[in-house]
């Protein structure tokens, strides 16, 4: 099975959020970057599939030079080769434009399966994978927990709401977006890093892919949420405090 895993490099999860001078994005000085969490699970699924059925795992990522670091991390964890769509102005593209770039970069790979994380930790749009499937003209399913090979193609386990699940069968080639947390991630090893140095990492300039950045959706402005998380102490008699808490659980937390 030839599997492409689309991964994104994102600011580390607990990054201190400050809006940059132009007000268009967060300030990136002093920010460390990581592989997007659900993409790490997508990579893990791909590696497990290859271990079970053989084949090749190709990682695909887009962004400036620093993204190479994350691709190499994926190579260290076991991916076979990498494709890096190099662009310093990726923010000019919206999700559709980005998916077009990706589609153009992998069009000739003729992969059996494309995997990606459910959503990114920064933008959280949760769409790029599904858009890519439509552009590639292949079926997809999202929120996938488990992938099995079936006679006709794939049998996948999809998470539904409230503890419900569903099996879905589909032919290949297909695209799946992977939910975090269902498998155990492997840690990067010294041996993996050393091996990764000899693996192919192809840099593809975004300009060379013939996709113009004409966004249909714009991120206009950014603002820090006014309310910071603080502990609300609910006081009063036990009955009063309990009643106040129940109200919070109903109105704010919405679990009742």
């Amino acid at each position: 099975m030839k599997i492409i895993v689309a991964i994104k490099q994102v600011p580390e999860r607990d990054v201190r959020i400050r809006i940059d001078g132009a007000g268009r994005w967060i300030a990136l000085d002093d920010v460390e970057f990581r592989m997007n969490e659900s993409d790490a699970y997508a990579l893990e699924e791909a590696l497990l599939l290859r271990e079970a059925h053989g084949g090749e795992v190709i990682v695909l990522s887009a962004g400036p030079e620093r993204v190479g670091q994350t691709i190499r991390e994926a190579l260290a964890k076991g991916a076979d080769r990498g494709i890096h769509i190099v662009s310093d102005t990726l923010a000019d593209y919206d999700a559709l434009g980005l998916a077009r770039l990706m589609a153009a970069a992998i069009r000739n790979e003729a992969a059996d399966l494309i995997l990606t994380g459910l959503q990114s930790d920064d933008l959280g749009l949760g769409q790029t994978g599904v858009i890519l499937a439509e552009l590639m003209g292949i079926p997809h399913s999202s929120l996938i927990l488990k992938i099995e090979k079936a006679d006709t193609g794939l049998k996948v386990l999809r998470e539904l709401e409230d503890g419900w699940f569903q099996h879905i069968e589909m032919p290949t080639p297909a695209l799946l977006t992977i939910q975090s947390g269902n498998t155990k991630l492997r840690y990067a090893t010294l041996m993996g890093i050393k091996k990764a140095k000899t693996k192919e990492l192809r840099a593809v300039p975004a300009d060379s892919l013939g996709v113009a950045p004409t966004p249909v959706v714009l991120l206009d402005s950014l603002a820090l949420p006014s309310r910071q998380k603080t502990t609300q102490i609910l006081s009063g008699t036990p009955a009063e405090a309990a009643a106040a808490l129940v109200e919070k659980l109903q109105q704010e937390v919405r679990v009742l």
């Binding site: 991630l185 840690y187 090893t189 010294l190 041996m191």
Partner: peptide, 12 residues
């Protein structure tokens, strides 16, 4: 660990 042989939930 450096070869990835050690597979432990908590360690990972």
């Amino acid at each position: 660990v450096n070869t990835g042989e050690w597979d432990d939930d908590h360690g990972g």
